[in-house]
Amino acid sequence: MKMQVDDTMQRNNLVSREELQRQSEELLTALLQAIKKGNFDNVYTDDYAQVNDILSDISVMRARQGFSPRETNRFVLSLKQALCDVLEQEHAGTPEVLYKEILQVNSLLDNLSIIAFETYIKGREDVILRQSDEINEISTPVIRVWEGILALPIIGTLDSSRTQTVMENLLQEIVETGSSIAILDISGVPTVDSMVAQHLIKTVSATRLMGAECIISGIRPEIAQTIVHLGIDLSNIVTKATLASALQVAFARLNLQVRSIDRMAAPLLK
């Protein structure tokens, strides 16, 4: 019986033959133990606890490895054919018994496949959750431009969960570095509607509550147009067209000056 099942399942080539063999053996052993107890109906009882655990592990793993739902489910359903074949041989002479047993095996495996499917989906959801967290993290770097000056280039749309991450990262960095000026650069934000503007205003307000100043840079002409057309009031916030001019303001606030070195004096510095 084991042989048959393994054969059926080796059609998948996303995991190694040995791994697959091990998984199906594990599952089969557990399943046989459960069946011995004579319970064919309720897979949510303790008899099937081990089977369910193994099945869940396999399904979650497959979700992470990128198996399709069809492939994952076939792993379970392929048992059906194998078990039916065995039953057919055993009860060849008594069709009534065969029919009954096949029915039982069918419903049992259907239930198991539902469990596999449920955990597969859960595994996928976990993957998605983790990825969206990662995207949030990656897409909001805080750069220490200068002593006391932080810059935060925002790329992509600014929704409320993103704003929260931006605020968290920015404020934490302000505390850690003792920076008194933060520049939010929105050149990479495709559109600024009233929601996005609201999020920007919130970020600026929170920065101010901490005792730091926030400058918004990277206002493209079309963004300036939409801001005015939508009647969004940003007059309380220092805004600049480019990151460079925001930096200039920041330097001025910190009483710093950037000069080009006099060519005649330059050799002396070497």
Binding site: Q164, M167, L171, V175, T207, L209, M210
Partner: peptide
């Protein structure tokens, strides 16, 4: 010295 979490909450 307002804490970041407090600042965000107030906003």
């Amino acid at each position: 010295g307002m804490q970041p979490a407090v600042a965000i909450t107030l906003v």
